[in-house]
Amino acid sequence: MSWRLAIHAAVAASVAVVGLTGAVPQPSAVPQPGAFIRVTPGAVDDAVNGNCSLVEAIIAANTDAPRDACRAGDGADTLQAAGRFVLTEVPAGSSSRTGLPTVTSGLTIVDAKISRTTDAPAFRILQVANGGALTMLNGSISGGSAVDCPDGGAAICAGGILNLGTLTLVDSRVFENTAAGSGSIVGGAGIVNGGTASFINSIVRDNLAAGDTAAVGGGITNNTGASLSLVNSALRGNSSVGPTGGVAVGGGLANFGTASLTTSRVQHNAVSAPGGTATGGGIYQENAVTTLRLTRVNGNEPNDCQPAIAAICG
């Protein structure tokens, strides 16, 4: 991944930051549905049994073909998926350790609370492919545990969501996901964004990146060339934990691309690496552009931003 190359021993940073100025951007429009697919509450199987599970509905939307009781998708589809969906395993034939099929088409998921059961093998919850577009409305992603990074390298990334396409979260939460292990870099425990991501009225909280060498972005890692926007949203209680003498940066956000935070909060995030480099408890930025408008960054440990942003990171 591109952000593997961005961390080095000196943790040098070259960042352009804009302060509390400019107009507040309007939230992106929610994609209009093609097919409307009603998901059987709680169902996550992929078997011919007369229901329409969340797994089967994503496959039907991706392929524009029926799957079990799910109708065929038709362009940008909407899944009405009210309820809780608890994942226990990686679908058969998956090319990565991800609990749901990779989103490869235009897809909106409504009202789904998606989690991984604690006694399941480790896997992330969701992945959006390059060219795919996912909107989540009034949903949540929790309990994911990353063990690989399928877009390349020896890194471990994205316990909750790996986005390589377009991701929009509206009134949603990403919480209590982990990325941990012996990869060269462990990061983006909540979300890794390698494409375009927009969060509106959403929360990324209590996610943990813990690496044997370096931990990057407990809440979100925004990759080189990626674009991230937060409006009326929060990064709270996320952590990056490196080993003794190692590196830990970006407890809330590790930004290596372009990020814009408007009327948002980055609070009570933390980084630690005893005897090593631990910085950017709230936001870490390297070769990045970070724009903050009417946004509070405070209460992070051991500091709010690296490099510091005067009068904004208090």
Rank of each mutant, 00 (worst) to 15 (best):
S2Y: 01
S2D: 11
A6R: 14
H8C: 06
A12W: 03
S14G: 14
V18A: 06
G34Q: 05
A43M: 08
V48P: 10
N49E: 13
N49V: 15
E56T: 03
I59K: 15
N62L: 11
A69D: 10
G75D: 06
D77F: 09
Q80P: 02
G83P: 09
R84T: 13
F85H: 04
T88W: 07
E89T: 14
V90W: 07
P91T: 14
A92I: 01
G93I: 07
G93V: 07
T98D: 05
G99M: 05
V103W: 05
I109M: 15
K113D: 11
K113N: 15
D119H: 12
D119W: 05
Q127I: 02
Q127W: 04
Q127N: 11
S140K: 06
G143D: 06
G144S: 10
A146R: 04
D151I: 13
G153C: 02
A158E: 00
G160P: 13
L164V: 06
L169M: 15
V170I: 15
A189T: 14
N193F: 10
A197E: 05
S198Y: 05
F199M: 15
S202G: 04
D206V: 05
A209F: 02
D212A: 15
G218A: 04
I220D: 06
S229M: 05
S229R: 09
N238A: 08
S240A: 15
V241C: 02
T244W: 00
T244N: 12
V247H: 01
G250F: 09
G251M: 01
G251Q: 01
G252F: 03
G252A: 10
A254E: 07
A259L: 07
L261R: 10
V266L: 11
N269S: 05
A270H: 02
A273M: 12
T277K: 04
Q285Y: 01
E286K: 11
T291R: 14
R293E: 01
T295E: 08
G299S: 09
P302F: 04
N303Q: 10
D304R: 03
A308K: 04
A311Y: 11
I312N: 06
G314F: 07
